[in-house]
């Protein structure tokens, strides 16, 4: 069992207008097997948390800590974090022209495992995972995310989740921009991996609809860079009915 522990995290970004604080003291602990949903209005800092965990250089950690089984995540480079078992399914996966999916997946898998995957099994694993996510086989020969639709890009993120088998998956608004069918397919992928019992999941979302397919154990409401309220799945139901108004009203 593994634990991802975030303690009193303060994060800011530098802009032309100066330094802007975004996260203002976030504390959160995720264990293997748990699914945590982070919900909140736009601009509340949800995605900042995701990017900070993955190590995106834009975000400056002013204080606080992130540890993975006691190891200091903040001192690791982006690739070291991935190799330590953290996976960020990105909100906006970039296109990487000239690099085929096949080449990319194999290169990443090799880097993550420290050795090249057995060719025979790997090819089969990729094929199977693609078909389960209803990704066309010809995507393997296309360049990473190049010309993929929004929904296709999200499926490819989950494809990587299933192939790379991280210890902790952070899903940054994976549901946004998906139609109902795609949402189901993507959710099934996450559930398949989660059900193996070896992964903790941090699900960041603006809407409650993905929570119909991925059942959270804990729900945290993000307001203005802090967790304003937390509870069980019933909190999501309440948010669906009431929205974020009662929180934002307090803030104002």
């Amino acid at each position: 069992m593994s634990t991802l522990e975030i303690k009193d995290l303060h994060v800011s970004i530098d802009t032309d207008q100066g330094n802007v604080p975004i996260l203002r003291g976030v504390t959160l602990t995720i264990n293997t097997g748990e699914t945590h949903a982070i919900m909140g209005p736009n601009g509340s800092g949800k995605s900042t948390l995701a990017s900070t965990i993955a190590g995106h250089p834009r975000y400056k950690v002013d204080s606080g800590s992130i540890t993975l089984d006691g190891e200091d995540v903040l001192s690791m480079s982006v690739d070291e974090r991935a190799r330590a078992g953290l996976f960020l399914a990105m909100q906006y996966p970039v296109e990487v022209p000239g690099v085929t999916m096949t080449n990319f997946l194999r290169t990443a898998k090799t880097a993550l495992d420290g050795e090249a995957p057995s060719l025979r099994h790997w090819t089969k694993d990729v094929k199977t995972a693609m078909s389960k996510l209803r990704i066309d086989a010809d995507f393997a020969q296309r360049n990473v995310n190049e010309g993929f639709s929004g929904g296709e890009k999200k499926r490819v993120e989950i494809l990587q989740l299933e192939l790379f088998r991280p210890r902790f998956a952070i899903l940054d608004e994976t549901d946004s921009g998906l139609d109902v069918d795609a949402l189901k397919v993507v959710s099934e992928g996450v559930n398949r991996e989660h059900s193996k019992g070896e992964m903790g999941t941090l699900l960041i979302t603006h809407y409650t609809r993905i929570l119909r397919y991925i059942k959270p154990d804990f729900v945290h409401v993000f307001i203005a860079g802090r967790i304003a309220e937390q509870g069980g799945p019933e909190l999501a139901d309440r948010l669906e009915e009431e929205g974020y108004d009662r929180f934002t009203a307090v803030e104002a």
């Binding site: 190590g55 990105m90 970039v94 790379f164």
Partner: peptide, 17 residues
């Protein structure tokens, strides 16, 4: 960032691209 976030070290990522 995308490639490194998948575990690929910086040099290898640059060469890949």
């Amino acid at each position: 960032f995308y490639l490194m976030a998948r575990g690929i070290p910086e040099k290898a990522a640059r060469r890949l691209v």
